[in-house]
């Protein structure tokens, strides 16, 4: 049985402490700029904040993973270099990277620090993963959320590194690191700027019949009737029209959360080394509840017990949830 570390989101210093206290084996976080894929106003760490946070985490035996998982456009590469150098000085335990140039820079300049391959690198086959392991000495790959558990088991048997999978949180539909939808609508790029559906480009427009349109840039992503609960406009969760369908339909996926609570034992059995909880943009209360619940469940499974997973399942109750691609190929 693998150890199955719990990798938890830390959007702010306060939520980092919350995740550490709730039992995270590792937390992941980023700087306040485009070097990470959650470059939102009010999130992330200044150098001083990260220094203090690393100290706090290490005192509790929790590792700190630095997300440098965006793609530097030429002319701005120094920002990523500086972030990598700063991370090394502050004593982070691993980098999470996607760009080949960034991986190469770290391998050459900070060879003593572990390199994890971000989900943004979209390595979804043993060949791609072995390539990154051979070239950059990657120690762990974060798998894209497109594989079934039997496929994960097979990949694990063919690669010489650890596997991390997402188990909970927002469920992106597109292959990560290959999506320019936000940039098409807004001029801000998920890959280069670290943003998906930036709040500054979101508009809510109500018509005279109280229908609410949610817009990103100049495009209506969804429309809600009076009294209907409006979601945040993300292009891959919107409703559009096409000839085959009556009215607006979810062309890609419904607004839905990933929750693999029921599959934890199977994932451990398949050889997954680490479970990632999404949500650097979430509140401390959310982080505390989700992390402590999964902490309990993973510890029970490690001890050979069958935990009651009802509490974990209830975390997304009232919202739509999915096991995404993990349970069956029919999701595709």
């Amino acid at each position: 049985m693998t150890v199955a570390e719990l990798i938890c989101p830390a959007g702010t210093p306060a939520s980092l402490r919350t995740a550490v206290d709730a039992g995270a084996d590792a937390v992941y976080c980023g700087f306040q700029n485009a070097t990470n894929a959650r470059n939102f106003p009010g999130l992330n760490f200044s150098p001083d904040e990260l220094a203090a946070s690393v100290r706090y985490a290490h005192e509790q035996g929790t590792k700190v993973l630095l997300a440098l998982n965006t793609y530097p456009p030429d002319g701005k590469f120094d920002l990523w270099k500086e972030a990598a150098d700063l991370g090394a000085r502050l004593g982070i335990d691993a980098y999470i990277v996607a760009d080949v140039g960034v991986a190469e820079y770290i391998r050459q300049n900070h060879p003593g620090i572990r390199l994890h391959l971000s989900v943004q690198a979209a390595a979804s086959s043993p060949e791609a993963i072995r390539y990154y392991v051979r070239e950059f000495a990657v120690k762990r790959v974060v798998l894209p959320r497109i594989l079934t558990i039997p496929e994960i088991r097979e990949i694990k048997s063919e690669i010489p590194c650890e596997i991390e999978t997402f188990i909970f949180g927002n469920h992106g539909l597109m292959v990560e690191g290959r999506c320019s939808l936000t940039n098409y609508a807004t001029g801000l790029s998920t890959n280069m700027d670290g943003v998906c559906s930036p709040a500054a480009e979101v508009h809510y427009v109500r018509d005279d019949q109280e229908n609410l349109s949610t817009r990103l840039g100049e495009f209506t992503i969804d429309r809600f009737g009076a009294g209907e609960k409006a979601g945040y406009p993300t292009i891959c969760k919107g409703r559009y029209t096409t000839a085959q369908r009556q009215g607006g339909y979810y062309a890609f996926e419904e607004p839905i959360s990933l929750n693999l609570a029921r599959l934890l034992p199977d994932l451990i059995d398949a050889g997954v080394n680490a479970f990632k909880i999404e949500g650097r943009q979430r509140s401390r209360a959310y982080v505390r509840e989700v992390v402590s619940s999964f902490r309990y469940a993973v510890d029970q499974i490690r001890a050979g017990n069958k935990p009651d997973l009802a509490d974990l399942v209830a975390l997304t109750e009232g919202q739509k949830e999915t096991q995404g691609a993990f349970r069956t190929k029919k999701w595709r």
């Binding site: 530097p72 080949v100 190469e104 390595a123 060949e127 791609a128 890959n191």
Partner: peptide, 29 residues
């Protein structure tokens, strides 16, 4: 796709638009 690079062994090849060459460091590599 990076899967295609595992066995390329120095053979001349082209890198396509899905390979995310955003900067000179990646290009040089």
């Amino acid at each position: 796709n990076a899967a295609g690079l595992l066995t390329i062994d120095g053979r001349a090849h082209r890198i396509g638009p899905f390979m995310n060459v955003y900067n000179s460091q990646t290009l040089g590599y």
